[in-house]
């Protein structure tokens, strides 16, 4: 593979100094999400992250599938890939393997990721390629106008379940934590932007696939869905640890329920993940040592006219016709 990451240190410094963009540099268009939609909070957090990390817009790709969440790339002044339903992850994996020099983000929803794209979700966790995956989970299909999603709580009245949805909602955190090679799992809620940002930043610095489930409100189709958490802040449990995130004093006073959790402990992480009330917010699991498939499959050999010629020559020698003709 061609290595596009090589750049002199001086050049990097110059770029940082000269070209660091303000948040407006990452904004594009006016989001067409509903007023009060949780997607807006995610967008702001992402734009802040790019600014604070000094990322170059041309070196950054936001990949999405289909759904309300997946309109995300249209509002980022970076490269964007708004593809097909459920397939954001394999597209992002192709980008990641072809171009190690790019920053890859994925925005997907509960239907996109946990239903039509469920196979890719499981395997993306297992591949552990370096990328940040934000799942905007509003527990409903919004763009198609209110059908139950895999994470809808049982009893959700929707256009396909007018008498209430039949099954318990899927817990994406426990499923993700059950996949071999999982390396970073966090949960955020759209109404605590400070923690959403901190989690996103930690995710960006993780050397592997960071999976963030973002619990978000859908004022249009599920207006009361998270009221119990909003009206009673003690039902939101903030996770903190010296090796992980700390909680500011203002947040600590607003949200009285805290839990010290070491994110290297997967068993404890699975226990915490299984709780839906209180709802845990923070980094549940983090293991920076899990190997990345995008690095494992990268060959040491370089791609060049010379190496291609060499390989073809040696293969054709193997299969050369030796008798009769001019073959040696």
């Amino acid at each position: 593979m061609i290595d596009l990451t090589h750049r002199s240190a001086a050049e990097c410094l110059l770029r940082l100094h000269d070209e660091r963009l303000e948040i407006e540099g990452f904004q594009k268009g006016v989001p067409r999400w509903c007023a009060g939609c949780g997607d807006n909070a995610v967008l702001t957090a992402a734009q802040r992250l790019l600014r604070d990390e000094g990322l170059r817009p041309e070196k950054t790709v936001f990949v999405s599938g289909i759904g309300c969440s997946s309109r995300f790339p249209h509002y980022m002044n970076t490269y964007g890939f708004h593809g097909i339903h459920g397939r954001a992850l394999p597209v992002a994996e192709g980008i990641r393997v072809a171009r190690p020099d790019l920053n890859v983000f994925v925005n997907t929803g509960d239907g996109d990721s946990f239903s039509i794209g469920a196979a890719h979700w499981i395997h993306a966790i297992r591949y552990n390629m370096r990328m940040v995956v934000m799942v905007h989970d509003n527990q409903i299909y919004g763009l198609t106008k209110k059908q139950a999603s895999p994470t809808s709580p049982r009893g959700t009245r929707s256009n396909t379940t007018p008498r209430g949805s039949y099954l318990e909602g899927l817990n994406p955190l426990t499923v993700t934590l059950g996949v071999q090679n999982v390396s970073f799992v966090a949960q955020a809620v759209d109404w605590i932007p400070e923690m959403l940002y901190d989690i996103l930043q930690a995710a960006f610095h993780h050397d592997g696939l960071s999976f963030i489930r973002i619990v978000q409100r859908c004022p249009e189709w599920m207006p009361d869905n998270f009221d119990r958490y909003l009206h009673d802040p003690s039902r939101v449990q903030l996770l903190h640890h010296p090796s992980s995130l700390s909680i500011s004093s203002s947040l600590a006073s607003l949200y009285p329920s805290h839990l010290e959790h070491d994110p290297s402990d997967i068993h404890r992480a699975r226990e915490i993940a299984s709780s839906t009330d209180p709802i845990p917010v923070g980094i549940l699991y983090h293991d920076p040592t899990v190997p990345r498939y995008d690095e494992i499959i990268r060959s040491e050999a370089t791609h060049s006219s010379a190496s291609v010629r060499r390989l073809l020559d040696s293969e054709f020698d193997k299969f050369a016709v030796t008798g009769g003709g001019l073959g040696d």
Binding site: R87, A301, H303
Partner: peptide
């Protein structure tokens, strides 16, 4: 691999196609 190439055995046919599209 001798020319730096990658064969990715994807989780399904759709992933194989979309992975190639991403690349």
């Amino acid at each position: 691999p001798k020319v730096g190439g990658v064969v990715h055995q994807a989780e399904d046919e759709i992933a194989a196609a979309t992975f190639a599209i991403g690349a």
